[in-house]
Amino acid sequence: MRRFLIAGGLVATLAMMSSAALADPAKVMIPANPGGGWDGAGRQTMAALEQAGIFTEGVSFTNKGGAAGTIGLAEFVRTAKGDDNALLVTGVIMVGGIISNNTPVSLKDTTPLARLTNEYNAIAVPADSPIKTPQDFLAALKADPGALSVGGGSAGGADHVMLAQLAKAAGAPVDKINFVSFSGGEILAALGGGKIKAAISGASEFRPFAETGRIRIIAVSGPNRLEGLDAPTLTESGIPIEMGNWRGFVGGPDMTDAGRTAWLERFEKLHTADAWKETLKAQGWEDAYLAGDDFVKFIDAENEKWSASLKEVGILN
């Protein structure tokens, strides 16, 4: 019996030592379950920081998924007070989630650091669709919004909001749009098989299918055309809409100025590091570096845009 006790104690001490051995590691809260987009953003970014030799003190990750990341946000605001090394992965989905779930905490309770990546949306149609240009799409939307079934991610997400903005631009009634929610790869099968008339999703999701000629990308929602893709941006087609799935990092509620400066410097170094460029390429992310006060302003603008759009699509009263 005593031997068991000793063994148990040994394991326990070992475990404690291994966690105490790290000097002052970063504590990264990932507001999603392991394996998703935010999880990858958090883990890959920290790995790049380590590889580039910018931050090598070690990292511990906590996954706390749910409710568009707002559960992780609430936990982060509660636990990260006064810890300059506590970081939270955030993104456009959280901005929408905070508004539609009406959560008691918001990104205002954190210290925004930097937006790092973005993935722009694209509009795609089945290969044999009569819709060929963004204008065709708007015309179809105006003619009979209900008849144009458009697939996308979950209701109230970036895809849904983008469709609402398109309807508005077309002068069609926003409450009549026919948004069909999909998850995962099903949307590609439904679009390729002509079960839906069009789809809005991340551009990189569509590209392989567009290359094999099963679907056609008619527009992208970024400020620039995508390399090697013959599809106009919405802006150059005269539709002033930009919509992307951005991700970034924020710090704890009362992050000190020293801590904030230190992390801003680290992200700036990361932005130019080769390791980061490799990560971006491997993950198919677009560089969307925006740091410090500019990032704070950007979040405010996103907040306004989303509050308005979510009301229009009927998610908010």
């Binding site: 019996m1 068991f4 006790l5 063994a7 148990g8 104690g9 394991v11 326990a12 070992l14 475990a15």
Partner: peptide
């Protein structure tokens, strides 16, 4: 308790 701690710590 000892077995429990060993298993859980592990």
């Amino acid at each position: 308790l000892a077995i429990g701690l060993a298993l859980s710590s592990f």
